[in-house]
Structures are given as structure tokens and as C-alpha cells.
Design a binder for these strands. Structure first.
Length: 203
DNA sequence: ACATCGATCTACT
DNA sequence: GTAGATCGATGTA
């Protein structure tokens, strides 16, 4: 637990513990909205508030793990609270948080952030200037934060990568079908914050 | 061995 | 709205 103060405001932040990830994946995807993703890099801290997520469950055809373990998806079968990073379309990385106990391969995809710290570094990483162009998509936010395949399997309770709760209540969380998924459109497993909708992808 | 497609993004029409 | 980028996973032969 850390305490920060700015002027007259005093508040506490705590790092999410293993229990946060060790539960129902749809619940975790919804609960992750409003939390803060932090990457500690040689260029300094880069962070953002999670405003959009999606849940991927093991029995879902859209889930990478639904047809068994491969070199790519192996991290999904492991411990909860680790980062599953995969490479897609030949040029983008996507970041997930592994949920559920070992052997149950489920995860939540992080789709959008509101940029908080290290915004100038995000601009350099992205080659874009406007804050709205930095983290409004799964491939964009990994590029902005400097997250690549070297962080696949990284512990989210560690020093390089972690998720914080600063006590912010984001209010209403909207549920919709997942983006880019043809099957199971009746499963409303995409979540985003109505209050932070300007930062969400695909608007 | 070859073809297709993907939990995406950008640039251009 | 559509094409192109470009690698790994998957499906068919």
C-alpha cells in the first residue's frame, strides 16, 4: 500500500493481489474497468486507466486456448495474475491478464486506457501527438506503453508491470458483444466505462 | 507444403 | 469504406 499526496488531496493506492485475478473471468473483466495499468520502463513510468476490456473463456471458440495449449497461448494455462502478450496481424501486440487457477485457460484482453503518466513517452512510442490517439485500441496501448512479447508471462504483481486501484469509482460499466468476434455475439463480454467513453476504441 | 485468416491499425479514396 | 502491412496458428492435401 502506498500513499500519495498532491496539495490538499491525500489518497491511497494499492496493487491488485492474486485474488483479483483468481476468479470468474467475466467478473474480473468488469472489475478491471477503472484500475490503473503501470509499466516501469528505463524511460520512466508509463501508466493509464483501464477503460475497456473483453473476457475470453476456455470453452469459447474465439478464445486462443479453446483448442488446447500451443507455444503462443501456454501462459493462459498457468498462474492467475500474469500477463499474456501475443503477436497478431504480423505487427501488433495485445495484452491480457490471465485469470482462474492453473489449468483453466482464461484471460481478459485490455482494449483501451485513459493515458495518465508518461504521456510524452507514449507520444514518442506511438509517433502520434493527440492523447486520444495513444491508447484507444489493444494494439495502440501496448505500443504506447512499450509492451511487447518480452513481457509475455510477466507477473502482474511484480515491479515491471502491475495494476493499481486508486479508489476511483467509474460508475456505469456498459456490456456489449466483443469486437472482431463473429461467434457468440449473444455473449456481452466487452466492457467499457460510460464515463470514460471518449477514450474507448472504435467510436 | 500451401492457403487462409486473425482478439489490428494506418493511410488513402 | 477498403486495402495493405506481415507473422504465427490453423486447416486442408
Amino acid at each position: 500500500m502506498t500513499t500519495r499526496s498532491t496539495g490538499l488531496t491525500l489518497w491511497t493506492m494499492h496493487k491488485l493481489t492474486r485474488d483479483f485475478y483468481l476468479r470468474d473471468t467475466v467478473e474480473a473483466a468488469k472489475a478491471a474497468i477503472g484500475k490503473i495499468l503501470v509499466h516501469s520502463t528505463p524511460h520512466g513510468i508509463i501508466s493509464g486507466r483501464i477503460v475497456e476490456t473483453e473476457a475470453y473463456l476456455r470453452d469459447d471458440p474465439a478464445c486462443h486456448a479453446s483448442r488446447g495449449m500451443t507455444r503462443r497461448n501456454a501462459v493462459m494455462f498457468g498462474e492467475a495474475g500474469r500477463a499474456y502478450v501475443y503477436f497478431t496481424y504480423g505487427l501488433h501486440y495485445c495484452l491480457n491478464f490471465v485469470t482462474q487457477p492453473e489449468g483453466i485457460a482464461e484471460a481478459i484482453l485490455i482494449r483501451a486506457l485513459e493515458p495518465l503518466e508518461g504521456i510524452d513517452q507514449m507520444r514518442r512510442n506511438r509517433g502520434k501527438d493527440h492523447p486520444r490517439d495513444l491508447c484507444g485500441g489493444p494494439g495502440k496501448l501496448t505500443q504506447a506503453l512499450g509492451i511487447d512479447i518480452s513481457l509475455n508471462g510477466e507477473d502482474l504483481l511484480g515491479d515491471r508491470l502491475c495494476v493499481l486501484d486508486d479508489g476511483t469509482d467509474v460508475g456505469e460499466v456498459v456490456s456489449r458483444p466483443r469486437i472482431g468476434i463473429k461467434e457468440a455475439t449473444d455473449r456481452l463480454w466487452r466492457f467499457y466505462s460510460a464515463a470514460y467513453v471518449d477514450w474507448v476504441s472504435m467510436r
